[in-house]
């Protein structure tokens, strides 16, 4: 058992109202359906300070990324021009086990969302 770096809360942090507010602001109040966007992330973070994630959504103009369990859920927004494939990867900070959420804005003005749970563990007791 590792001892020093206990996560802020052993249980998954509750999604806060900020998340829904950020999504509503991004969508300008338009409805956001489930799906149409992919989030890729490791099942368990190797290091909560640098978690690789990828997002992709065919036909998207922009993708908003949120970390639902961070004190501030904002992570990044990617905008895709005509030459771009609407997909991007980056590395992010996660304060504990939580959902990483992606919301895609499509050219026709519709929106889609998806989430992926990333576990942040104390680690250290493998075999």
């Amino acid at each position: 058992a590792a001892l020093a770096a206990l996560p802020a809360g052993a249980l998954r942090a509750a999604e806060h109202a900020d998340v829904e507010a950020a999504i509503a602001a991004f969508a300008g109040g338009a409805p956001v359906k489930e799906g149409g966007v992919e989030v890729e992330a490791p099942e368990i973070a190797e290091n909560g300070n640098t978690v690789p994630i990828s997002v992709a959504a065919e036909g998207a103009e922009a993708i908003l990324i949120l970390a639902a369990g961070n004190p501030n859920p904002d992570v990044a927004t990617f905008h895709f021009g005509k030459l771009a494939v609407p997909a991007a990867s980056t590395r992010i900070r996660l304060a504990g086990t939580q959902d990483v959420i992606a919301v895609a804005k499509f050219a026709d003005g519709s929106f889609g969302r998806a989430a992926r749970t990333v576990k942040v563990t104390i680690g250290g007791c493998g075999g």
Partner: peptide, 25 residues
């Protein structure tokens, strides 16, 4: 903290999704 350690390790072993299992005891 002791409870958090035990819960964490127990989830590494007994998470029902094998992709979250680390394979120790």
């Amino acid at each position: 903290q002791l409870k958090a350690v035990l819960e964490d390790v127990a989830d590494n072993l007994f998470n029902p999704d094998p992709y979250y299992q680390q394979g120790g005891d």
